[in-house]
Nucleic acid binder design. Structure first.
Lengths: 196, 196
DNA sequence: GTCTCTTTACGATACTGTATCGTATCTAAA
DNA sequence: TTTAGATACGATACAGTATCGTAAAGAGAC
């Protein structure tokens, strides 16, 4: 059942084309929920409805699978244009807050940080796939404002991005919750601090 | 040798008073370096120079030991008074940066976040012992400024604390490094954003 | 004061049961 | 005949416990 086989090339039984996606999805979910060390391949196999060798035929190790799973995520942020710089920043940050509060949104960050010493590829990929995009989006908004002459001279855009994004991490670390209106408060302070 | 015995109560051989400290120290180091799941009691025993039963005589489980180890840390921040609010904030944040860049400073944060679903006591203790103190220190500086009439009305001190502290997390998550002058840049933006 | 008895903690080692990664072997599909 | 998949397995690591002989202390006998 379910053999949309794509590559009908060589002889032999073709691979289940859907298995790959199911495995990656299960791996990503378990990675986020349980962390890298607790994520077991037996668990992934069971959740994906395949057996372990089916996994090992596609990826050579647990680390290989985990990085492949991380590679599949991508911030697909709908870039909102509200008309004002402060509005754009707030909208982008509200998106960010939603993704953090998704189940295990912060646990995934935790596990890639905790594994920095042991499996540094995870942190590297996380940066490349998620962190970089998010920062680039905010940086884009700020650069536009800068070109439009809205900002004071000499203000550090990198510092501003770190302030805005980081405040959510700090808030979560302190209480696991983010109050409504939080993004607006942040933008209010930072914007006043860097605008002309 | 080495029997500073503290509790000379009942009969019997007294406990090695130094073993306790050695065990906790080893546990904390391994917890930060390897994360909770990778920290093994065999490893702790070896590093502390004791046997496993000696550990289990004092703590009932791995989680019990790990939380006891976390309980031993305490931010002993020397509160600096530079004369200006911005100066005090910058000094406090520079202290903070130093502690983050200590070996495995961020890994420890990572592991308590990653374990939130499985061993929530770790995150709870981390908040109580480290996060809360750090935030209280910054909040103290800001409140003093507020009483002194330096701040605009209606500005959220909580938001400011999150901005300042969080920027370091964001920066580390993006690149594992913190450039010199970072704290000053942050304070510059935030202070201008909230001062009268 | 000394000698023994009892009590408690110690280190070392071995063990139980389980979880895990990764693989060998067999079976099903093309 | 060739490849995919599934069951079963080997090897290892781990949490937690049990056992054995020993070290250190107090308590009582003399």
């Amino acid at each position: 059942m379910a053999s949309e086989k794509i590559a009908g090339r060589g002889p032999g039984r073709p691979r289940d084309g859907e298995a790959e996606a199911r495995i990656l999805q299960a791996a990503l979910r378990l990675l986020a929920e349980q962390g890298y060390t607790r994520m077991s391949l037996d668990g992934v196999a069971e959740e994906a409805g395949v057996s372990k060798p089916t996994i090992y035929r596609r990826w050579s190790s647990k680390a290989d699978l985990a990085t492949a799973a991380l590679r599949t995520i991508q911030t697909s942020e709908p870039v909102v244009a509200t008309g004002t710089t402060a509005g754009d920043l707030t909208a982008a940050l509200q998106n960010f807050a939603r993704s953090l509060l998704r189940p295990n949104g912060m646990s995934l960050i935790g596990t890639v940080l905790a594994e920095e010493g042991h499996t540094p590829e995870l942190l590297a990929l996380f940066r490349e796939r998620l962190v970089a995009n998010r920062r680039a989006q905010l940086l884009g908004i700020l650069r536009r404002a800068q070109r439009g002459g809205e900002l004071r001279a000499g203000v550090s855009l990198d510092a501003a991005v770190n302030l805005l994004v980081g405040a959510f991490y700090a808030r979560y670390l302190a209480s696991s919750t983010i109050p409504p209106g939080f993004a607006r408060e942040l933008v209010e302070v930072v914007w006043r601090g860097m605008a002309k």
